[in-house]
Amino acid sequence: MNRPQRNEALYRLERVAKEYNSRRVLDIEHLEIFRGEIFALVGPSGAGKSTLLRLANFLEPPTYGGLYFHNQEFAPGKEMPLHLRRRVTTVFQRPMLLSRSVRANVRFGLELRNEHNSEEKVQAALEEVGLGGMADQKARTLSGGEAQRVALARALVLQPEVLLLDEPTANLDPYNVALIEEIIFKLNQQHHTTLVLVTHNVFQAKRLAQRVGFLLEGRLIETANTEDFFTQPSDVRTAAFVRGEMVY
């Protein structure tokens, strides 16, 4: 399969910790995410996967340590410059759409960037997710799968350098799961968009990712290329998780 070669680290995390009310939920010694790769982050619920994505989208700063994006540090009291922040976006597990039309929802991110003549881009993004005929429908009338595809379209239209996906197919039917996986895989193949996929579905990680990281109780237990991760994990806890033996 012709996948983009990873080269430089887009993200670098050094001794990053995140605490809420003095409770540490994330504690990562070192992690690099490379340009153009699909990196899957797996782990049981409550492992800190979504917290890591919020940090990676610069929604919250780490409590300690350094998170670098394009060698720019994101730390407490240090805002990530807007032009860098806008290179990254997230598709969340539970998409929150604005109570407007589907078209307005997809256009929203472009309007934030003062791009107002964007009808063609918006329509193309909707076609991409198979919702070209639903542009004028009210967003709140959509099914769960359709809403998630609108959320994906509003991310795609921004042509992000990094797309973070937080359990994007959880609770969706097999048709929507396959469709979304196909779209994000194509995005990586054709546009070399860096994808960070958070999932507790190891099969999905195996299908899509080039590298996989295993997060447990806030700590990064192991990262490896996908084949090694699933065939010869170096940590017994990773092996237990991959075999489905980990109780959570």
Binding site: R54, N57, T89, L112, R113, L158
Partner: peptide, 9 residues
């Protein structure tokens, strides 16, 4: 949070 993730100030 999702609006901020789309690049809103």
């Amino acid at each position: 949070q999702q609006v901020l993730a789309l690049g809103a100030t």
